[in-house]
Design a binder for these strands. Sequence first.
DNA 1: AAGTATTTGCAATTAAGTTGCATTCATGAT
DNA 2: ATCATGAATGCAACTTAATTGCAAATACTT
Lengths: 164, 164
Amino acid sequence: MIEKLTMKTNTEHCDARETLEKTSLYKTPQRIAVLDTLISSSVPLSVNDILKKICTQQKINKVTVYRILTSFKGKGIVREIETARGISYYEISCHHNPVHAHFSCRHCGMLVCLDPLTVSQTWEWFTRPRNFTIDHITITMTGTCHQCEGTLNCNSTADVVNNT
Amino acid sequence: MIEKLTMKTNTEHCDARETLEKTSLYKTPQRIAVLDTLISSSVPLSVNDILKKICTQQKINKVTVYRILTSFKGKGIVREIETARGISYYEISCHHNPVHAHFSCRHCGMLVCLDPLTVSQTWEWFTRPRNFTIDHITITMTGTCHQCEGTLNCNSTADVVNNT
DNA sequence: AAGTATTTGCAATTAAGTTGCATTCATGAT
DNA sequence: ATCATGAATGCAACTTAATTGCAAATACTT
């Protein structure tokens, strides 16, 4: 109950098996479990969250979850939210759940979905008093740089350059 | 040479000893070295970057750098940029270097500073063809949630909630 | 110069995420 | 229905960013 803005994912409309069929991914029990977990969740989940939810019903390995999420990302089934604490969270990517920003508590790691906002809503949102304190905004665009697009083997250089 | 937009930090105007004095932080050789390194850098640096640059001149421990950066963050001397790979980068926070977005290559980790943009510039920027491929935009606001503000000892719960 | 609170260094630890390889399994052809 | 095969999984070990506790060293105050 942190904000009045509402953000319903409505992912109940999505079907795990159907999605795997469409994206030509093998329908393994593990993939179905991970996808079902994400579909039925109203909030983004970390790998540990997913493991905890699934392990009560079936056996699944941490590495498998990582690999499943990687394949889901590749197919555009899920979005990854990288938080300030270096832990990734995952949410279903469908037309019922458009891209939006998140608030993450740097103390307990709690992650809050924020509504997609128009410009006027954004102003209203930022100026409204609320009961959490934002002290940092991270906007990072991730992708492939020119050099890596060409060579695709600069995996460990970690150079930093300016765009001047 | 990735973008035509220019983004000069101009932090040469800043003085390490003066900054430490102003913020009432002990002027230790380690703090001066870390601050000098950040002031003279035109790009954000990781802890490893900072270590590599300093260790040629003086002995300094990794943990010390982490703690120095934490104290600098607390005083508002530096900003932390959390990247998609879970590695934090640090840049001087002064009026010559206003808040801006970053592009980070998910393959080599390269970090690019993007200009602070107006709304019209943003449109122009996003629609312009460029030589890196953005496949993901992370916008995360970090801070302290209501619960942690009250108790300040929920450090390991990592709950996730929605803002509905 | 002495006392004190702060800072540093070291060693050990935590935890997210990755890699290699052997085993198991889903799928499509027979 | 069975089989062959490429794909997915599980396990163990590893990598690495970041943190913690504590003793030793150091910067500031008087």
